[in-house]
């Protein structure tokens, strides 16, 4: 079957299998920031935004994004033009192996889109379903709080 949807600001009209996951589709389209971790919706590595909401792409059927707006980390920033959230993760040292980072950033993006002055507890609650096996969570929380500060100062897009 064919579906149309918006991926990182560009219209897509693609063939999918009716039982295919969004994760599989996005990887086929070259979105390598979207990671396959647990493949059961538990770890958060595959998190993307659909109409601005963070969802698990591994347990989302690709057919469900017909006519909707999908954002992956590639749509947030690029190596030469990092999004402030990406810069904050670097600044705070919140990246080690990097496998969880795209999901962490997109989950944080949804949080900050609704609340640009979260408490540390609210940040921890927001990322409670995103697992990191390297750094621990302190620096990730620090990074999100730093990004929130930058957003309040107008350093955002």
């Amino acid at each position: 079957m064919k579906i149309y949807f918006e991926l990182n600001g560009e219209q897509q009209y693609v063939d999918i299998e009716p039982g295919e996951s969004l994760l599989s589709l996005l990887r086929r389209l070259g979105m390598k920031s979207v990671k396959q971790g647990c493949n059961t919706g538990d770890c958060g590595a595959c998190t993307v935004l659909v109409d601005g909401r963070a969802v698990r792409s591994c347990i989302t059927f690709a057919a469900k994004v017909r006519g909707r707006r999908v954002t992956t980390l590639e749509g947030l920033g690029s190596p030469g033009d990092l999004h402030p959230l990406q810069e904050a993760f670097l600044e705070a040292g919140a990246v080690q192996c990097g496998f969880c980072t795209p999901g962490m950033i997109l989950t944080a993006y949804e949080l900050l889109s609704k609340n640009d002055n979260p408490t540390p507890e609210e940040v921890r609650a927001a990322i409670s379903g995103n697992l990191c096996r390297c750094t621990g969570y302190r620096k990730i929380v620090d990074a999100i709080l730093l990004a929130a500060k930058w957003k309040r100062e107008g350093r955002w897009r």
């Binding site: 969802v55 698990r56 949804e110 609650a125």
Partner: peptide
Amino acid sequence: VAAPPLRNM
């Protein structure tokens, strides 16, 4: 119940 991305779904 679960985490925000799962509650979105």
